[in-house]
Design a protein around this nucleic acid. Sequence first.
DNA 1: TTTTAAATTAACCATATAGTTAAACCGAAA
DNA 2: TTTCGGTTTAACTATATGGTTAATTTAAAA
Lengths: 203, 203
Amino acid sequence: MSGNEKNTEQLILDAARKVFVEKDFDGARMQEIADIAGINKALLHYYYRSKDQLFEAVFRESFNTFSPRIFEIMSSPIELSQKIKLFIDSYIDIILENPHIPAFVLHELNRNPARIKDLLPFTEKTIGGLLSALSQEIKSAGFVEISPEQLMINMIGLCIFPFIGRPIIQPILFGNDDDRFDEFIQSRKTEVTKFILNALTKK
Amino acid sequence: MSGNEKNTEQLILDAARKVFVEKDFDGARMQEIADIAGINKALLHYYYRSKDQLFEAVFRESFNTFSPRIFEIMSSPIELSQKIKLFIDSYIDIILENPHIPAFVLHELNRNPARIKDLLPFTEKTIGGLLSALSQEIKSAGFVEISPEQLMINMIGLCIFPFIGRPIIQPILFGNDDDRFDEFIQSRKTEVTKFILNALTKK
DNA sequence: TTTTAAATTAACCATATAGTTAAACCGAAA
DNA sequence: TTTCGGTTTAACTATATGGTTAATTTAAAA
């Protein structure tokens, strides 16, 4: 047969990702997922028992798009200022490749905060180690006093927020022009890095 | 009659706010809103024709909790560093009083970006004026070169992100402990202000 | 070619849900 | 006391939706 040669399970997952990310769990319709996948609705249940389990598969995948890279970069053995630069660059790049995933993941976790437990691959010890290492690096670099937690949240927030806030930022600040918003994001990589490094530098 | 003396319309709006903010439009049930308001479901339709219109009322109210204050503060005629300090303090305070509203509003706008048009009370001119004034103030203050758009997004993002990201931040960074998270937010007012002002200062 | 198990579908079911309707209630005006 | 308009309710409707079932198709093994 010609044309569509992908296996059905993947077709379903792709369609489900599209619909769930766009409409969230409650707004998504199994029928729409089936239509987009080009299959019968019963097949969804044949491969993934229920809407819940199909959503679970999509959500896991989305969550894992982001979390591993953060820890990988932050635990690499390079100089802190370089590390920050690399982090911001990579993080904005990842989001650019999946611009709707952060809002999707955060919304689902707000809807169901308990879910986070099943998703964290990091033990408390890993986190603790990473944070105290970061704390040490801040000192050795001669940077301003700041808790590693505050710094991490600042870095991540400055990267993610423009994407989550896009539907309000773009109309207000950029006359709802896609190109101007994209420019803004592009310059953001260097701007945020500068901003953070300067914020960390003593006078 | 004793006890409950509020007018029905307000009872409905309060219940609707609670349910919509917690579950979003698609997840909310008219029956649950009626139950919480302690009335018959038909009354919801008597006062607000449809689920859409009830949601609209809640959403408008939520949106207006935030936007006016931002512009008020940013256009007040005080020194920029003071203005930033005041902005961060007030903004975090407003969010603390309505911690779930930012996620609610942003999620709804992501679901339906066109809606923003009906909500913006600011003309493009007002925005333009505010931004160019801010740009001027950055220069006169002898601050680092930064576009007013980048600065605004940084300020707002640093305030809002911890709240939107709470279900992932609190378990990862604070062992899922409410008190430790609250401490973190409290210290954030001064920490974010310091961070931004230092980021703006030439070395 | 026949058999068999997996894949796929059309038709169906049970239920949840937004919205409607007609009747009852209630307090104030006449 | 009666009337009347606004308020509230119980009961109902139409439809959308997640999920099921039994039958059909497909493709590979025997």
